[in-house]
Nucleic acid binder design. Sequence first.
DNA 1: GTGGTTTCGCTACGAGTCGTAGCGTAATGG
DNA 2: CCATTACGCTACGACTCGTAGCGAAACCAC
Lengths: 215, 215
Amino acid sequence: MQSRTPVPRAAGRPRSTTADTAILAATREALVELGWSKLTLGDVATRAGVAKTTLYRRWAGKNELVVDAVAELFDELELPDRGSLAADIEGVVLQFAAILARPEAKSGLMAVVAESVRDDALRERIRESIVDRQKCLVVEGRARAQARGELPPESDPLEAARTADLIFDVVAGAVVHRTLVSAEPADENWVHSFTQVLLLGLTSLSGTQKPAGSV
Amino acid sequence: MQSRTPVPRAAGRPRSTTADTAILAATREALVELGWSKLTLGDVATRAGVAKTTLYRRWAGKNELVVDAVAELFDELELPDRGSLAADIEGVVLQFAAILARPEAKSGLMAVVAESVRDDALRERIRESIVDRQKCLVVEGRARAQARGELPPESDPLEAARTADLIFDVVAGAVVHRTLVSAEPADENWVHSFTQVLLLGLTSLSGTQKPAGSV
DNA sequence: GTGGTTTCGCTACGAGTCGTAGCGTAATGG
DNA sequence: CCATTACGCTACGACTCGTAGCGAAACCAC
């Protein structure tokens, strides 16, 4: 049996949760003003009003700190039921695009992904706190579409997982590439065209082009 | 009018082209061994057998150097006519995936893209030396497909350009996301499934799933 | 209270990198 | 031969990194 405060209280002075939120907010602020390369932990500590040593007690380095700071941006992602697969896709892609349009996301996200190429632990951290949550939306959206009869039910669960991974890479990759590489906004027109390609494919799309501006 | 050596020869000792190639090769080597963050210009200079000052005389910094070093990796991209739109797409996507599978591309490409968020000149450099060349392949592939009758001819050139941009973001984004974020290989099976989605769309794809392994 | 434990803010430090300046030398053209 | 430009080398101040050490503060159990 355990007394009143079993495990969560470890004895000793507890870590200031205020400092945590202040540090993550300061990190995002520094990302906006300085960008990834000129962001220093000393500067973040000053902005947050904490000592530099406090930062190093909680995060191993710049990479981990920025992952946590950026991950909070994706907390607002959700998948409201808009009645059809096309509408669901457009809705969630627009949300995703809105987050990626923010400068702190642009500056930080790709940088940590680039770092994760040589750091397996970092990649796993990104997967857990950012990527997997997005992938769940794909799975849920497909389940809804199957319930509506818009997509046939999956027989092989392994094949279903592969398809979900594929869709996820296509959707997330396209929005990221549009936003960061092409450096043009993923606005309503673009998202609508993208959704048509995804749903109907290139050949089917050919005859159904619509004038820009209509919703 | 100009004398014999009009502009290219500026008078004085010419820059060593040997040094250029050695520096770019050394940069890729350092990218493989150290990755982006631990790559230093001093180290690259040592590997290339040149002085550090020589590096700074030709490149403004790490970003520009790595862009040039990575850009050479994409020189091998080409679009052989494989007879059908699907085959053309699979072929070029496999080439693209093969380049992205190399560690020097993984380490360098996303890092400079991340840096380009806050550096317009760098983004333009990336566009000229890497992105635009890839986009040409999309345009050419679509032109071929239209000549074959697989796609209807474009009436509005502006709409055609928008569509080409969209396709490019989808293709490049998906491969990059698969390789760097999901960290799984874009092999033949994946490319085949991706091509089906791109051509036929999600709904059309549903009934035509094939067992993995068949080519 | 009292003692034990952990965190906090602060200071200081060696190590490493950056980008530049200065110098003498090498390679080209007139 | 001379002007011009590139090269290799050295040295430098400025900056960031990540850590260690210290005293004070916050919490728990007794």
